[in-house]
């Protein structure tokens, strides 16, 4: 699959979907004007990927802020991973959060309760 890279801006996250480097990550800040149009190509890429995934999928979320509209999209992405797990694929979500940011940690914990996908919580300073 082609690599999808989107540079981060003050209101949109950096997206790296690169199978050659084994690097799948969404990081930074997410409050796009229109979540549907920003995440459209990201969702399409992931949907394509789930059809023929690698042996092990590790997906990193390293967000320091996301608005409520983005929170819904994140759940949509996680739901695609849940479907992969149901089909027997090996998926791990790495949820990175700033050490002192309890809300971001709790957001990760809540997502892990909502979808049946293994989560690894990683704090950074």
């Amino acid at each position: 699959m082609d690599t999808l890279k989107i540079e981060g801006t003050e209101d949109t996250p950096e997206v790296i979907l690169d199978l050659d480097q084994n690097h799948l990550e969404i990081s930074g800040r997410s409050l796009p004007e229109d979540v549907n149009s920003f995440y459209g190509q990201v969702m399409t890429w992931i949907e394509e990927y789930t059809k023929e995934p690698q042996d092990k999928t590790v997906f990193n979320f390293k967000l320091n802020y996301f608005n409520t509209a983005s929170s819904k999209i994140i759940l949509d992405i996680l739901t695609l991973f849940e479907e992969m797990v149901e089909k027997g694929h090996d998926v791990l979500v790495r949820w990175h959060y700033l050490d002192e940011d309890e809300d971001m940690m709790e957001a990760g914990e809540e997502y892990s309760e909502m979808v049946d996908v293994p989560f690894e919580m990683i704090s950074y300073t």
Partner: peptide, 23 residues
């Protein structure tokens, strides 16, 4: 309620998720 709305709600055409007040 937040988790329920996130799961069951749909994004509106204006891009709202109906989560703002709860959040």
């Amino acid at each position: 309620q937040y988790m329920k709305q996130m799961k069951e709600g749909q994004l509106s055409t204006k891009g709202g998720a109906g989560l703002g007040f709860i959040d």
